[in-house]
Computed example of a mutant assay.
Amino acid sequence: MTEIIYALQASDQLVAADFTSRSLIKTSDVAQVGIHVQLSSEGLMAQNPTHLIGTSEMGPKTTLDTLSRAGINVEFISSEQSMQGW
Rank of each mutant, 00 (worst) to 15 (best):
T2L: 11
F19N: 05
A31D: 14
R22M: 01
A7D: 13
G59F: 06
P60H: 06
S79Q: 08
M58P: 02
D29A: 10
E80L: 11
Q32R: 06
S11I: 10
I4T: 14
A46W: 00
R69H: 07
L14Y: 04
I53N: 01
L39F: 06
Q32T: 13
V15T: 13
T55D: 00
I53V: 12
W86K: 07
K26G: 05
S11W: 03
I25A: 10
T63Y: 11
T50I: 00
W86Q: 01
K26R: 07
V15W: 06
V74A: 03
A10S: 13
G34D: 04
I35Y: 13
N48I: 14
E3K: 12
V37L: 04
S11P: 03
I53L: 02
M45D: 13
K61Q: 15
A70S: 12
L24F: 02
A70R: 11
Q32A: 04
A16T: 00
K61I: 07
S79C: 01
Q13Y: 13
M58I: 10
E57D: 15
I5R: 11
Y6S: 02
Q9P: 11
A16F: 13
V33D: 01
L67I: 09
T27M: 03
T2P: 07
T20K: 13
L64Q: 11
E75N: 04
E3F: 12
E42M: 11
E42K: 04
T2A: 14
S40A: 11
I35Q: 04
G43Q: 14
F19A: 10
G43Y: 15
S40V: 00
A70C: 09
A16L: 07
L64T: 03
Q38C: 02
E75G: 05
M58D: 04
V74M: 09
A17Q: 08
P60V: 15
Q9W: 10
S11K: 11
G54W: 02
D29C: 10
T20R: 08
G71Q: 12
S23Q: 06
T63D: 08
L8E: 03
P49K: 14
V30N: 02
I4V: 11
Q47P: 05
L44H: 08
M58L: 03
D29E: 09
I25P: 02
S21Q: 05
S56D: 11
E3S: 14
S56K: 12
M58H: 04
M58Q: 02
L67K: 15
S56W: 00
G54P: 00
D18F: 05
Q84A: 14
T62H: 14
L24D: 06
I5N: 10
S78D: 02
F76S: 05
Y6L: 10
L8I: 09
S23G: 03
I35M: 01
L8S: 14
T66R: 01
V74Q: 05
D65C: 08
M58N: 03
E3L: 08
I25S: 02
I77C: 12
S79M: 11
A10H: 06
T50M: 08
Y6R: 05
I25C: 03
Q47N: 15
